[in-house]
Computed example of a mutant assay.
Amino acid sequence: MAAESTCFYCRKLTSTKKLRRCGRCLGALYCNPDCQKKDRPNHRDLCGESDGWPDKYRGCKDGSLHEGKLELMTWEYTDEDGIQMGWGNVVIEEVEDIKRKFKVDYKGKKRLFFKYWPQGFRWTCCGTDELMNEGCDHHGSGSKPCTCDFCHMGRPVPASDSIHRGQTGPSMGLRLRRGPDPRSFNPTLAALALKGRATLGLEL
């Protein structure tokens, strides 16, 4: 978990260690009991839909929340460097070793295996691996506004984006929304995103 996180209600950035977790899902983070109480109407449905073990890993550094499931990656794909990847999101040559570890050392229990090998899992809500904690780019499918540059700009994610074409390992087989999330448009953030992406030579 990041050293600093954002309160899910007031959005104040503070040390993750000082924040309180929702005692039920262990995912939502709050400054104090008052923030937790005020956010209860928004958090209730998501918390109630919780299916257990992934929840304490849902919180993102920017205060957003992954709302999909953590899914063990069991398929083969070729990454951007042309390397063949397989079960557990490891290179093909290491697949049998990681499978044995899962079945023998962790007795086939995903909760235990996840603590050892989180990069073998993906979030179904945004098609990224579990290690991504900078925000869930759900582009309108989440309970809270999306935090990505494109939704701030009021634009859909470009059709060429490999995640949305299912071309990355963590996004394979998913049909992800391209947005924009109408709740996210913000002229100030849009201007910053346009300038920043142009400066870095990123797609607009």
Rank of each mutant, 00 (worst) to 15 (best):
M1E: 04
A2F: 03
A2C: 10
A3N: 11
A3T: 07
K12C: 11
K17Q: 04
L19A: 08
G23S: 07
G23Y: 03
R24Q: 09
L26R: 02
Y30Q: 00
P33T: 04
R44V: 06
D45V: 06
D45F: 09
C47I: 00
C47S: 00
D51T: 10
D51K: 13
P54K: 00
P54V: 01
P54Y: 00
Y57P: 00
G59Q: 00
G59V: 01
C60R: 04
K61F: 02
D62I: 00
S64Q: 06
G68P: 02
L72W: 05
W75P: 09
Y77Q: 07
T78H: 06
T78N: 08
T78D: 03
M85L: 04
M85R: 02
G86D: 13
G86F: 10
V90R: 02
V90T: 01
V95Q: 05
K99F: 11
K99A: 04
D105Y: 12
Y106F: 15
Y106Q: 14
K107E: 14
G108H: 09
G108R: 10
K109H: 15
F113I: 10
W117G: 12
P118I: 00
P118G: 01
Q119S: 12
F121R: 01
R122G: 02
M132Y: 15
M132G: 13
G135N: 07
G135E: 03
G140M: 09
S141D: 11
S143D: 14
S143P: 04
T147N: 06
C148T: 10
C148I: 14
C151P: 05
G154P: 15
R155S: 15
P156W: 15
P156L: 14
S160N: 13
S171T: 13
M172L: 10
R175K: 07
R177V: 14
G179M: 12
G179V: 13
R183S: 11
S184V: 01
A191I: 05
L194Q: 13
L194N: 08
K195C: 14
R197Q: 08
L202R: 06
L204Y: 10
